[in-house]
Design a protein around this nucleic acid. Sequence first.
DNA 1: GCCGTTTTCGGCCCGACTGTTTTCAGTCG
Length: 591
Amino acid sequence: MSLNSELSELFGLFAALMDIRGESAFKAIAFSKVSRILKDTTIDLKAAVEDGSLKKIEGIGASSQRIIEQYVKTGRSDDFEEVAASVPPGLIPMLQIPGLGPKTIALVWKQCGVTTLEDLVKAIDEGKLACLKGMGEKKIQGINEGIALRAQAGKRIGIVDALPIAEALLQRLRELPMVDMAEVAGSLRRRCETIGDVDLVCAPRDESAGAAVAAAFVKFPEVQRIVVQGSTKASVITVGGMQVDLRIVPADNFGAAIQYFTGSKDHNVKLRGLAAQAKMTLNEWGLYRLDAYDKGDKKPGMAPSIKPVASKSEQEIYKALGLSWMEPELRENRGEIEAARDGKLPRLIELADIRGDLHCHTTGSDGQNSIEEMAEAAIARGYEFLAITDHSKSQVIAKGMSAERLVQHAANIRKVGERLKKITLLAGCEVDILADGRLDFEDAVLAELDWVVASPHVSLKQPSDKATDRLLRAIDNRYVNVIGHPTGRLIFGREGLSPNLPKIFAAAAQSGTALEINASYPRLDLCDSHARGAIEAGARLSINTDAHSTGEFGEMRYGIHVARRAWATAKDVINCWTAAQLRAFIAKKRG
DNA sequence: GCCGTTTTCGGCCCGACTGTTTTCAGTCG
């Protein structure tokens, strides 16, 4: 695990421990924030400790800095260990149980001696919890259900599984005659790589039709089980076991609702702070002037009776707060609010900006389709160029090619390119970066190609410094144009390499080597925060599907999501350049 | 714990829901 993720985890645990200890919730929130900052950042913490730049990061104060410094130097933290020693570690996983929070956990620990989940189950069975203050029959039943729920589900799912189902449900909602507007919200709208549940928001044409919309929604064929069904909300479990929450709001409050339920939580918290500074209050119903709001009539489940400053559209709400509208992918409180205030939001890359794919496979190695079929599929997508990059010889399982076969393959690619004319085909290779940073082919072989993607496939658990040297060596090779899936991580699968990213980004920028956002799920590698670090360091990105069949070119959209979350514009991504620009990019590095 | 054109002290987002309550605490998103 990298130093950054170790420290991120430490601060996350620290926050949980403080919660259970009953310290000020704001302290725990502050440490959670530090945990998230460390998870997102690509800065080299060792270097930041040495040059004292740590405390310049907003959200990291004196205490956090002290903890990080000690941890970087010694691999441990006195502050953390002291707190950890005072709370049984078995209590921490209990925070994951729905309906069970820090206060209740502390109560059963101190009053009943519960220190593990097993203890808790036993205490419930023996009726020990019933004698606690504020603990009734229903609450105990709720905890029991929470434990069961946690055991059977609670797992996040990949965007690749969630998005198609959400889009199908959205389509059905929009086709309902009584529905005026419907939209996806939540982490799915922000295009996060994994999501907990799907949030949908819709507005009926007639405000009284809420119950009818909910009734129609729970009968959709994708729905397996109904959790809640009312006139303002319906919650269901789909056939695939995914939870989908539908909120039904008046059309006049649609913008506020979708803004609110899109989040992120951190983004909304910051926005509410801005509202408060301007003597306003922001909630899921709208943005209101504070003095009027306090006097207004409020009933649960209904819009406040007073006139809002803004509520119909997101644009209105942001505008009233002095901000331009923000793309959902940016709403993570990673500087987008300041950028929107200063008119410095990027024009994010779109799928339509992509002119070609620079990493795919054919039957030459482990792909399903021929060179011609892949090229025709690329033309059908409107691409101007396509790089065919089959595996090198070390990838025996993937039918990796010998040098002789590769040269013949390149000749075949060029022949197809000349015949088709409508597209520029680049004869390339995905060459393995061996564990020590050597490439799987000699330079003389690579020099025969138009395009080289160099990727790590083995030794993905090597130490950070070795991984750094390995990738730097590949970047240094004049024939290497892209580092493919640079860390080798798999979502839900493996952590992959954790190289010193600032060094990698700087070398890539300086040498004219692009870094890949591999669009194939579950790779999505680089991830969003890494890709953003690369852009900030001046490196170019390349979004590629790594398609092993013509159908997989369609995965480009998932790579675009990552790039947008990384604040990428079309100029940052070489797939948006013209074929001529690409040729110049190649020629410049070859020298 | 963090932060500062309302502050170096005193705030820190807001509403809904639930359960165990006679006015509120805990949890969730």
